[in-house]
């Protein structure tokens, strides 16, 4: 019999990633609803401390695969080791974050295990009668929502969208067990080779961390206003600049600035969308902002259905006046 809720607790630079804390938070609730333990899998090199942190964040048992071959993510190595851990721990549910690595690992692992996977979920619940995981996920970019169950196979797998789950609270008095996992993988047998990692140029506040984000869309008609209007305004407010996919596809700004379903998921306290129509795929990335401001000259633009504050007008005129007023207000 399978038992326990397992989360793939990702690490970055040896510490628990924020998505891991969100998964541990979500996993704890599911485990408690089932009356089963919360398990975590930590893979990497030099991750003992992160494994202990997983305990402090709610895990009862942590499977730790600590080996040089797991230093950097690779589909083949991570899939093999995760499959081994699942075979050992036999969890009934397995959650993986929708991160760069999670989105690559989860489907490959699901097929290796011969089980079903619900992708990019935003809500997870246990059905009180059937005890099945009910995973709710946006489909068609968020134009519809689907609730998915996995009846016949175990573990029931789900990937989870970033910033949709309440992160676990750290409690250093929590006790748990660390189970070392033997990694026998020979790096020479891995088919792919990671040649290099290239960092995109980045200045100022990281988009994912910014409290205030000002974004531009196709209506900006070129790269100029991103740098002439949006960036100075974001700087003034201590925020970052983002973009819709249309602006990225046009080549005006780098892909790392894209917000949305296939871009970044952000939850700033203030999001200002300039000349963005508000397609579901875009709102998938910014819908969790506490306050959404839309500046669009089309009063019927769909974004006004999701915005808290709206300005019907040309951003080219609205933003400079807004900037000036903010400057005055911030001086006071």
């Amino acid at each position: 019999m399978t038992q326990g809720v397992m989360v793939f607790a990702e690490t970055t630079g040896g510490t628990l990633a924020s998505i891991a804390k969100e998964l541990l938070g979500a996993g704890r609730k599911l485990a408690d609803a089932l009356g089963e333990p919360l398990l975590a899998a930590v893979l990497g090199h030099g991750v003992q401390e992160a494994a202990q942190e997983a305990v402090y964040h709610g895990a009862d048992t942590v499977y730790v695969a600590d080996a040089p071959v797991l230093e950097t993510y690779q589909t083949a190595s991570y899939t093999a080791v995760m499959a081994q851990i699942v075979a050992q721990a036999q969890p009934s549910i397995l959650l993986i974050g929708m991160s760069d690595n999670g989105r690559d690992l989860a489907p490959r692992l699901a097929f290796r295990l011969g089980t079903g996977l619900a992708s990019d979920c935003v809500d997870l619940a246990i059905n009180p009668e059937t005890k099945l995981l009910e995973a709710t996920r946006p489909v068609s970019g968020g134009n519809a929502m689907a609730t998915v169950v996995i009846e016949k196979t175990r573990p029931q797998m789900a990937t989870v969208r970033a910033k949709t789950m309440e992160p676990a609270v750290r409690d250093p008095s929590r006790q748990g067990t660390l189970v070392p996992v033997e990694v026998t993988l020979d790096p020479a047998t891995l088919p792919a080779r990671v040649i290099e990692r290239v960092k995109a140029k980045a200045e100022g506040v990281r988009l994912e961390d910014a409290e205030i984000v000002i974004a531009g869309g196709r209506g900006l008609k070129g790269p100029e206003d991103f740098y002439a209007l949006l960036e100075p305004c974001a700087k003034l407010l201590g925020g970052a600049v983002g973009a819709s996919r249309a602006a990225v596809d046009e080549g005006w700004v780098p892909t790392q600035m894209q917000i949305g379903l296939t871009g970044k998921i952000i939850s700033p306290k203030l999001y200002i969308a300039c000349a963005i129509s508000g397609a579901a795929q875009h709102m998938a990335g910014c819908g969790y902002a506490k306050t959404i401001v839309a500046i669009n000259r089309d009063p019927d633009a769909p974004i006004f259905q999701r915005a808290h504050l709206g300005v019907v007008g040309d951003y080219k005129k609205v933003i400079p006046a807004f900037h000036k007023k903010c400057e005055e207000l911030l001086k006071k």
Partner: peptide, 18 residues
């Protein structure tokens, strides 16, 4: 292996302050 038990269109109550 997966079954959709519910499919619906989310509604957002438009409460934009212009």
């Amino acid at each position: 292996l997966t079954r959709v038990v519910k499919l619906y269109i989310p509604r957002f109550e438009g409460s934009c302050e212009f």
